[in-house]
């Protein structure tokens, strides 16, 4: 511990100062109202959620750090992953995507059974299971490498390291997966004629959408690659900023940030690749033909 205590430089934010920050949301709300963006409700609801979720997780983390139990930590990680996977495809376009029933398969996914049947209020995208697999496997693989080999905390399941690191990977993977799917879907819809022509020449579904799949993985990775190029010049990433605000030596914070950037890059690449590889078949019928674009387009609220 540094002389003067760990939090020597941390300036606490009081209740009233926190409330003042709400003025910033009013600014964004004003823009939405002026240009009729239809975002007011989402904005208000999002602000309330951000306040509540962060406050609750602040308290939860205190307890979890105190318990220091691998099972509780693991449970929280899986919960975080599920929410991220669900969010990634919650507003994703699903026009022309075939669910299990239309493809002639039996609908036996336990998550669907529990959520869609018992609790019809919850809308579960047909892509949610694919998103979950892509997100969890890419995140956990990269997190295992980073936590196990690079940071190697004691004990290895130290929630202070595991939860923060995994959370950062998941947040980025979530956005990347959402972008990759969106691009795959829109590019196949845009080039239907070319995709069907390739199918006519005897292409397999994968061969027919390979160009779109390449664009999709690229689209998912692009924000991360862009950030990689300008980090430190344009952006000072949140984690590094936080460490510096908390009084850490900037040179040490930078080393952490390099590890974080690289692991986010690896996880997004892997997540996008998995998502595209798992989901493209949903655009095709059992006969390997492009599914007709039927049904209403589900748009973001």
């Amino acid at each position: 511990m540094r002389p003067g205590g760990l939090n020597a430089a941390l300036i606490p934010i009081g209740d009233w100062q926190l409330a003042l920050a709400v003025i910033l949301v009013l600014l964004a709300g004003g823009v939405s109202a002026a240009f009729n963006l239809g975002l007011l409700r989402s904005l208000a609801w999002g602000t309330v959620r951000a306040f509540l979720q962060l406050t609750i997780i602040g308290y939860v983390l205190v307890y979890i750090f105190r318990w220091n139990d691998p099972w509780i930590t693991g449970g929280l990680l899986v919960l975080m992953g599920t929410v991220a996977a669900w969010t990634a495809v919650g507003r994703a376009p699903t026009r022309g995507v075939l669910g299990a029933k239309e493809r002639g398969a039996q609908d036996r996914t336990p998550a669907r059974f529990l959520l869609a049947r018992r609790c019809p209020v919850i809308h579960l995208s047909p892509l949610a299971p694919l998103s979950l697999v892509s997100l969890l496997s890419s995140t956990f693989l990269v997190a295992a490498i980073v936590v196990g080999l690079v940071i190697s905390p004691h004990p290895w399941y130290s929630p202070r390291v595991l939860i923060t690191i995994t959370g950062m990977i998941m947040g980025n993977s979530m956005n990347a997966i959402a972008l990759a799917w969106e691009r795959l879907h829109s590019d196949v819809a845009r080039s239907r004629r070319e995709v069907e022509a390739l199918l006519s020449f005897g292409a397999t579904p994968w061969e027919a959408v390979a160009d779109s799949a390449r664009l999709a993985v690229r689209a998912g990775m692009l924000p991360t690659v862009n950030t990689l190029a300008v980090v430190g010049l344009v952006t000072l990433p949140g984690m590094m900023t936080g460490q510096i605000l908390a009084g850490a030596d900037p040179r040490e914070a930078v080393r952490y940030q390099i590890v974080v950037m690289l692991m986010i890059t690896a996880a997004t690449a892997l997540g996008c690749l998995l998502m595209v590889a798992l989901s493209y078949r949903r655009l095709f019928t059992a006969d390997g033909a492009l599914a007709p674009e039927t049904g209403p387009e589900k748009t973001a609220r």
Partner: peptide, 20 residues
């Protein structure tokens, strides 16, 4: 026939030509 092989033998030339 596997569907893709059938399509390769029985080729559709659509009304709107595909341009790559």
């Amino acid at each position: 026939f596997p569907p893709s092989l059938w399509r390769r033998r029985v080729i559709l030339v659509g009304q709107e030509p595909a341009r790559f």
